[in-house]
């Protein structure tokens, strides 16, 4: 779907709860997320890559719906129109020595 990154979403208006942490793993605030949207980060993926929101230990398990909601509100669209965050192995943080000790691997 074509997404015009210059479309008018109105100005960034500071809000009293801008200092509230939303991504607790990476300590990203609501204000930073809203600001990022106004900086052109119109997708959850770009917000994550720009701010690290959802990139921490829980991989967005806790905050991804919250980030989506904040971004959607800022963009004036339904959260369902924003893409889901991608999922990558490992599902749980795993020590290098465990990943390095494989059994049964085949290319």
């Amino acid at each position: 779907m074509m997404n015009d990154r210059s479309r008018d979403i109105g100005p960034f208006v500071p809000a009293p709860d801008d200092d509230m942490i939303v991504c607790r793993c990476e300590e990203i605030t609501k204000g930073e997320i809203r600001r990022a949207v106004h900086d052109g980060m119109y997708t959850v993926t770009e917000i994550r890559r720009w701010l690290r929101a959802g990139m921490g230990l829980c991989q967005g398990q806790t905050c991804s719906k919250l980030v989506k909601g904040i971004a959607a509100r800022e963009l004036g669209i339904s959260p369902a129109l924003l893409e889901p965050a991608s999922s990558r192995a490992p599902m749980r943080p795993t020590e290098m020595k465990v990943l390095g000790r494989e059994e049964g691997a085949c290319a």
Binding site: R88, A89, P90, M96, K97, L99, G100, A105, C106
Partner: peptide, 28 residues
């Protein structure tokens, strides 16, 4: 990612940096 790529990289790194063996990989 492939099912074995991260494991290969981990094995490579640990030979050079043994103290990273317990560092957790959060994403590939």
């Amino acid at each position: 990612s492939t099912s074995y790529g991260a494991s290969c990289t981990c094995r490579g790194i640990m030979k050079y940096f043994p103290e990273l063996a317990s560092a957790k990989i959060v994403r590939t």
